[in-house]
């Protein structure tokens, strides 16, 4: 059994299986919009328990991909542990470490997805100007002002929404939301998705907390460091 998890052929065939599963997913997602439509609007585990389990055929690709990723994770861990436990020589130290750094980065990114799928929160709602909304952790979000930025041709070039966050009645953070400019406070992000200016300006906001975000960034950095090392070390050896 250990040989199975240690085998490079397991890696190759698992990756091939995942490619086939994702291919199936790319077909089933648009074919079953009613099932997959809410996949990005709520935490993934919530989507699984409320929607996916009720539609096992439409979501089959997702469950299969979880199984494939679990197998790939075990395969990656076993291979890396074996590589690190093997005999070391000074000459090939970097060449043996570099793939393991890539593997650790990959595992951190998977951990990030796991944490983001089950914990944290993802809230969406509309808030008129000079109104407030309750948030988790005894926080309150207040929308102070909302201004669209329109150029001389009438094209929308940006937007600015002034918001304030209160925690336990204290003003703890304030900022201006814009395109690609959310407001972060203790791991929570406030985003302006769109707005409505008809009678009274209303901001359509999203408030997220993703405990996996840090691990995704950390894993990505490790992945790139490892990949760059492999590139530099193997370029001339190829």
């Amino acid at each position: 059994m250990k040989n199975f998890f240690l085998s490079l052929k397991t890696t190759v065939w698992t990756l091939f299986g995942l490619i086939c599963i994702f291919f199936l997913g790319s077909y089933l997602m648009p074919a079953h919009r009613d099932v997959h439509g809410s996949m990005n609007d709520q935490l993934l585990f919530q989507w699984v328990s409320e929607t996916a389990v009720l539609h096992p055929w439409a979501a089959s690709w997702f469950f299969l991909s979880l199984a494939g990723l679990a197998l790939l994770t075990v395969n990656t861990v076993v291979c890396s542990v074996q590589a690190i436990r093997g005999k070391w020589s000074r000459a090939d130290f970097l060449l043996r470490m570099a793939p393991q750094i890539v593997h650790i980065g990959f595992l951190c990114i998977l951990l990030a997805h796991f944490l983001g799928a089950g914990w944290g929160y993802r809230l969406a709602g509309s808030l008129p100007v000079e109104m407030s909304a309750r948030l988790p952790d005894d926080r309150v979000l207040f929308l102070n002002d909302l201004r669209p930025q329109i150029d001389s041709r009438g094209s929308l070039t940006g937007w600015a929404a002034e918001v304030v966050i209160f925690e336990n009645g204290q003003r703890v953070a304030e900022g201006v939301l814009g395109p690609n400019e959310p407001l972060f406070y203790k791991g929570m992000g406030v985003y302006l998705k769109s707005f409505d200016l008809q009678d009274r300006p209303i901001a359509h906001l999203m408030v997220n907390r993703d405990p996996g975000a840090f691990w995704a960034l950390f894993g990505s950095a490790l992945f790139i460091v490892g990949a760059t090392m492999i590139l530099l070390l193997k370029w001339n050896r190829a």
């Binding site: 997602m29 983001g116 993802r122 690609n180 959310p182 985003y191 975000a213």
Partner: peptide, 10 residues
């Protein structure tokens, strides 16, 4: 931009 580093789309 959207509060998530990953979106489930084809």
């Amino acid at each position: 931009a959207w509060g998530t580093y990953w979106l489930w789309t084809p």
